[in-house]
Every structure is written in C-alpha cells, then in structure tokens.
Design a protein around this nucleic acid. Structure first.
Lengths: 344, 344
DNA sequence: AATATTTACGCAAACGTTTACGAAATTCGC
DNA sequence: GCGAATTTCGTAAACGTTTGCGTAAATATT
C-alpha cells in the first residue's frame, strides 16, 4: 500500500493540494467546512506529512543532535533523559552521537551535521580534544550550538555546566574537615575546562587550610587497568589519607584497588568523588559523592538551544548557566562508619 | 554565507547539476578529469549534500530509530552503545525515543515515524503495553522492525533477546544449591514475554528440586518506594531465605530494605538479580548477578535491522536470536562471605 | 567510409511539501 | 446596485537532489 500524501488527499476530496496543505495547518484562508472535511479524511487515512519534503521546503528539520563522549554512564544518560523530555514536548526529534572520547570522530560528526540535518546541536566535548578549530569552523556556519558539562570556554557559545570549582572546593574542604592531611586528586587527563576547574577547587581548598605543599595530582583516563595501576602506586608511595576523584570511574577504580589490597575505607583513606550513580549508597562503604544535576543540565541545555533555534533573545545570564551540584556525605568520608546505609 | 549546493558547484564549474551529482557519486558516466575537478571544488567549499533533498528523492533517510523505556539504566545504555557503533560504521544516523514505560507515548512515537523519517526501527516495548494493536498496525506499513529484549512474541518480527528462561533457571538453581529453601521472585508487573519467561525459569527450577509449594512471586514496578514497601512486607511475612530479582532496580530495592531493617545478606537472605551494573561488585555485600549481553544485543539488533533494510534474506536462525547471559557469583549468594571483593 | 558502439555530458522530470500570487465568489459600504 | 473589501480556493514555483532519457562527440566495427 502506497503512502498517503497530499496529492492523494486532494484528489479524493476534489481539492487543490495547496488547499489541503493549508487546511491541515489551520490556515485562516480555508473555510471551517473544508478544514473539517480534510482533517476527517486525513485522520481516516492516518496521513503523516513527509518530513523530508517539509524540511526541504521550510529549511527546518525539527531535529536536534546530542553529541557526547559516552552514554554508558549515569551522568550522560540522565542528561539525555532531560534533553529527550524537552525535545519530545516540543515535537522535536533527537539524534544521538557518541564520540568515545575520540576527537576525530567528533570532528567527523560535526561535518556530517553541517547541511540541514539538524536545526541545532548540543555537545559535551571529548577529552582528547586539544584544538578546537573544527568547533570554531562549525560556529561560522551559524548553526545553533550549546555546550554542556564539558565546554570550550574560549568560544562565544552558551554553556550549561555545574559549579565545578565550588563543588570541588567543598569536597576537598569536607575531606580536610574530616581530618585528612594529605589529599590526592584524581584528575581527568586532557585540558578541558572541567578538569582545570575541578583541580582549581581542590587547590584553593588546600590553600585555604595551608596544605599547599601537600598537593598531589594523579592523571587518570578511560583505561580502568591503567587507572588501578596508578592509584595503587599512589597509595603505595604517597600514602594519602584522602582521595578526591574528579570522575565517577576513578572513584570506582579506587575502591577496587583498596579492596584488592585490603586498604580500609575510611579508616586508612577517605574517598569522595563526582558521581551520579545512586547505587553508591550501597557500596562498602557507602561512597560520599558530589552529585551533578544531570537531568536539569539536559533540560536547561535543550531549553537554551530551542531559544536560539527560535531566535529568541538570550539574556546574558542564560549564556553561562552553572547549576549547583550537591554534596552527599556518606560513610566513605566519615570517621565513625555508620552501620545502616542511607537511601539515596 | 549561503549553503553550498549542487547548483552553486555546477555554475562555478560550468557544468550541469546532474553532472556534478554524478561525479560526486563516482558514476561511470563521468570522465576522471571532470570527477577530479568536481571533487576538488566540493572539498574546498566543504560541500555536504542536503540530506532532506536526497532522502525525499531516494526515499531513504539513512536514519534508524531506537525506542526504549528508559536510558538511565546500564542495560539500555549499553544496548544504545552497540546500536550506535554499528550505525555509525554504516553511515546511518540514530534517533532516540524514550517511552518511560508509557504505552501511549510509545504509540504516539510509532505514529510519528510512519512517513519516511526513518528507514527502520528497533524497539523494546514498555511494560504498560497490554494490547499490541498499534504495533500490529505499524507492521502493516512494511517498515523494517526489530524487537530487542522486551519483545512481542505474537508478531512475526525478528527478536534479539537473551536466554531469559535458562538464565532465570540457573539463577534460581544457584540459590537452591546455596541452601535456599524458600525463594521469592521479584517479578516485573505487566505481561511481557520477558516477565513470563523469567518467571518460568524460576518455577521450573523450583519444580526440579521439589520446591513447587514454596513458590513466592511478588510484583514490582517502576516506583521505588512502593517496591521497598512490598519487599519489606515480603521479608516480614514470608521470611524467604533467597530473593531473585527479575530487574536490577528490584535487587537494589532489596538491598535498601535489608540495610534499613538490619537484615543480613547473605546470612539471613541471599540475593541475586539481573543487572548490568559493574559496580555491584563493590556493594556490601557484592551482588551476584545475571549479566545480559547488552552491548551485543544492541549490535546484533542493529545488524539484523540493516539486513532487513538492505533487503537481504534473513535466515530463520536470525529471526529469533537469544544471546546467552552470564551468571556472576558474588558474596550475596555465598555462605562464607568473602572479605576481598572481586573485580568485575 | 558508413554504421554501430561507447563515452561524457545536459535536459528535465520527478520526490512531497509550502507559499507567493492571482482569481473567482461572496460580502460589505454607501 | 456599483465598486471595494473579504473570503476561499487554485496555479505554479520553489526547496536540492537523483535519474531516465536524449544527444553530441569520439571511438570502434565491418
């Protein structure tokens, strides 16, 4: 059975194609009677306008793209959840692209999206991205663009992030107040703003409490095995009494190493990390975390993107939005280990 | 700056639009010299063909859709990962739609996709889906379609699943061999095939070991609070010594209740559940799981979908693929609790 | 050398929609 | 009841691509 289109409706109703089109879009130029006839038949035949024809003619795709390093991670999947919610309510479709932290893939994807496939896109850049030139080049195309979480500060593009510096400061301060004297920071490799900001918060906190000489930064990456090796070396050589993981994965790696080596958390080393995994409340011991407002970031990023797409004016305050993270204290950073676990 | 299109290239090169189009597609009707000229200019101006015009003309969108209940869950995000990998390699784009277990949303989405926006789609149906009539209606459109994980057996559509019955049998058998006499099964509400199959495995195992009279099924759903209430009542009233959770979420809920009530796992009750969360190895105690081959399911589903799209013949064996799950035993089901945790 | 074949390109019609413009038919102002 | 405004609809040209067909020129065939 062939697809039903405007031509078929028009012939059946003895009307011109344009009349049918207008009737379906509730144009004032069409009488109510005709509208009713058209809509009745359209409903009966379950007519859906061809999106490509429409997009071609109107130069609008009603589609946005989300480009992120991975999806197998609660932070990014929550972001996606927020984006999808907003988009679906607005009648937009969402394309998803995963870079797996590969800037070549990122560049290829951006190239693919240059010619009208999407009305706009949001991106969280890969940590292997050193040069932003292809992003710059992309910006010249006037394509609506929003950064989230992992942003590129040097570009004049709206950014939706969390208050990384403050959150990192608070997390470090929490460790200090819990009695830690030698705090290590597990940083993400690369020089993304998110990394430098979190490190800044760590260093500022050390400075405030006169611990500057105990600065201890270890770079980690996407390779679990390598991370565990580095963390093991860290624990062996520097015997820190506190570890602050910039990324959920690194906190997990720390737990794995401690379990294997029989190092007691929190007695020997306290651990805190950025994480959006609710189940950390069930860890042994429950992991203290900085929880990012991932869903809200997704919603906000989508909202801002749609404002740009709809050519609404963006207030300056809307161009750089930082939604605060939440510090959730659990047994991994408290001296007296609670026996009953809190529910996330 | 306007978008560059075939017309602009043609004018610049003093060629016809059709020649440019053919040159870019490496048609044999075009001389090598002309091809080189065209491609050089196209590269220089960074020409990307307008996808809507192309899709309209060729009646091909190079896009597939993935419809799933949620993304904030390691199983589904791993599936998505697999799908995206395959699609990206094939030069296809991936639209994502989340139903949040709402069959109305599911039905709406299917309606939206009727008219050419995608070349095919894969779906894991929501558990609120009781009638499959809109799925049936969809099938009549000849749209390439693949089910994954949560399938609809009554329809003649390729299904990529895991061996739910066998896996559930093995999990239950494992509990029995670990000494459990009274095993409760936390089932997902609704009557999806996945639910009935997992329950069958549970019941078959009970039967094999003569425990049929101890059958104990509790229905759970997406509401954590309600689940915890039901699980608490189960523990209070029936004092099972083993719990088998059909869904990751229910296992988590079980841990939460046990923690709050001070019920010891595995001493008082052993717990096992379907789960794709690697971090369960860090739980207190580490959770035994049935791990589904989520990434492979995504890859396989995409591969089958593309075969249908490309009108390749599907072997019968490819129409119902069940990739085996993996049973991972940890301390939550072993009598002697290991002090060092295994790494996932 | 005349015909047949191949090579290399242009013309123009699609694909299904939207929309500027024009033209009947109706209503209104007076 | 005549011109003007309004309502209601049709004609046709876009949007950018693909592709069947035609046609010159070049080459091959006899």
């Amino acid at each position: 059975m062939d697809n039903v289109n405007l031509k078929k409706l028009a012939k059946e109703l003895n009307l011109a194609i344009s009349t049918v089109s207008r009737a379906l879009r509730d144009s004032h130029e069409i009488s109510q009677e005709t509208k009713d006839r058209v809509k009745a038949l359209a409903a009966k035949l379950d007519f859906q306008p061809n999106p490509h024809a429409s997009s071609l003619r109107r130069n609008k795709s009603r589609t946005i793209a989300v480009i992120m390093p991975e999806i197998q991670n609660n932070f990014f999947s929550q972001v996606m959840n927020g984006v999808e919610d907003v988009a679906q309510k607005k009648g937009y479709h969402v394309l998803i692209y995963l870079t797996h932290e590969d800037h070549n893939r990122e560049s290829d994807i951006l190239h693919l999206l240059r010619n009208g496939r999407v009305d706009g896109l949001m991106i969280s850049v890969s940590n292997s991205t050193s040069s932003f030139e292809y992003l710059q080049g992309f910006q010249d195309t006037e394509m609506p663009l929003v950064f989230f979480d992992r942003v590129c500060d040097s570009m004049d593009v709206p950014c939706i992030t969390t208050d990384d510096t403050e959150a990192a400061f608070k997390a470090t301060e929490h460790l200090i107040k819990a009695g830690c004297k030698k705090i290590a920071f597990l940083s993400m490799a690369g020089n993304l703003s998110i990394s430098t900001r979190r490190r800044s918060g760590y260093i500022e906190a050390l400075a405030k409490y006169g611990l500057t000489s105990d600065e201890l930064v270890v770079e980690c990456g996407p390779d679990d095995e390598l991370n565990r090796k580095n963390i093991a070396a860290l624990l062996q050589n520097n015997t820190p009494d506190g570890i602050f993981a910039a990324i959920e994965r690194f906190a997990i790696n720390t737990y794995e190493v401690c379990n294997k080596r029989g190092i007691q958390i929190p007695e020997q080393v306290k651990v805190i990390g950025f994480s959006n995994l609710e189940a950390v409340a069930l860890f042994d011991p429950p992991l203290s975390t900085i929880v990012q407002p991932a869903y809200e970031i997704g919603k906000e990023a989508a909202a801002v993107l749609f404002k740009i797409i709809d050519k609404k004016n963006l207030l300056d305050a809307e161009k750089k939005i930082a939604i605060p993270s939440r510090l959730v204290i659990r047994a991994s950073t408290t001296t007296i280990q609670a026996k009953s676990h809190s529910i996330a």
